[in-house]
């Protein structure tokens, strides 16, 4: 009963979000101006604008106009946003494992339910250590093992630190999936299930849809949202404000509660760490240890079970010999 209810609402949300995302993409604003409403645009006198080829200049805001831009081309998406280095900080002390981030992400990227670009793990490093919830997006490593092994340059690292996948180039060899030590990547094994609204949206590596069979996908730090001055959807959707996102060059991160902190201060005050630092991948995602938690710790006796259902609708393919 409850379940079916949930399903219908989520589908409705899904469609609405789909339409909204569609319009949002077509009406993107030049460069990286902070535009939240039209009113604001007419007022502020000067604006700092980044041109697509990486130059910075200041212009009269009045002279800026909104234009209907196609989604960034593959070449544009490969270069990335100049002068930015995006980072994420996840406060494990604030995460209560509600998975709102996963749900937001799945709705925005139209992912199938078993693909969790940001996944909340129940972690316990050793029996004598405390268990904690561990949301894990793509770490967008500065020394990315996935990007190293790609034979066709389908996955690439941009100047703003984001690692993306071009699913129009990916040949589906899955080297990157083998190379990623964080199991971050997902493969489109069968024909992806997606609505017509989604397939009609022009493809851009910046949002990863419409997805294509036989290609790899993963968390993308929502660069299409960033271009609109918005934070990635998981950051915005976290009800606990546990996820912070921002530009390392600005030394600032913001969470869903609208609080902006100095990144270096946050790292220093909370003794932040990066997951599996000794692998040398240099992740762009920092974790704040779960000290002084405000929620009950996860019950590790309730070990998350594997789902009984099998993936996808390819029942024939699942038959075992």
């Amino acid at each position: 009963m409850n379940n079916s209810n949930k399903k219908t609402t989520s589908r409705r949300d899904f469609l609405q979000k789909g339409l909204l995302a569609g319009t949002a993409i077509t009406a993107s604003v030049i460069g990286l101006k902070k535009v939240f409403s039209e009113e604001e645009m007419q007022s502020a006198d000067k604006s700092i604008v980044f041109s697509p080829n990486g130059k910075v200049f200041t212009v009269d805001t009045n002279k800026l106009c909104e234009y209907t831009a196609p989604p960034p081309t593959n070449d544009g998406a490969r270069i990335g946003i100049a002068g930015k280095k995006f980072v994420m900080v996840i406060d494990l002390a604030k995460c209560d494992g509600c998975k709102a981030c996963t749900e937001c992400c799945q709705a925005m990227h139209f992912t199938e339910p078993d693909k969790e670009w940001i996944k909340v793990f129940k972690m316990q490093d050793a029996e004598t250590l405390i268990p904690y919830y561990f949301p894990k997006p793509c770490f967008h490593c500065d020394n990315p093992p996935c990007t190293k092994v790609c034979p066709v340059n389908a996955t690439f690292k941009r100047q703003d630190g984001i690692v993306l996948i071009d699913n129009e180039r990916c040949i589906g060899c899955r080297s990157c999936m083998a190379a990623c030590p964080y199991s971050t990547r997902f493969f489109n094994w069968s024909h992806p299930v997606q609505s017509k609204e989604v397939t009609n949206i022009p493809y851009s590596p910046e949002h990863g849809f419409p997805r294509r069979m036989g290609t790899v996908e993963k968390c993308d730090f929502c660069p299409h949202m960033i271009r609109q001055g918005k934070m990635p959807t998981c950051v915005d959707g976290c009800p606990m404000g546990a996820i912070w996102f921002g530009d390392q060059n600005e030394d600032a991160v913001t969470n869903s509660e609208g609080i902006t902190m100095r990144l270096s201060q946050l790292i220093e005050d909370n003794a932040a760490y990066r997951h599996l630092e000794d692998l040398g991948t240099e992740p762009r995602v920092y974790y704040l240890p779960p000290k002084n938690r405000k929620y009950p710790k996860p019950d590790m006796n309730e070990q998350p079970q594997l789902q009984k259902v099998k993936h996808g609708e390819m029942n024939m393919g699942n038959m075992q010999m």
Partner: peptide, 14 residues
């Protein structure tokens, strides 16, 4: 046997 634990995935993934 990846570094991350295999949790709450469809049976046939694991």
């Amino acid at each position: 046997h990846p570094y991350m634990p295999i949790q709450e995935v469809p049976w046939d993934w694991a």
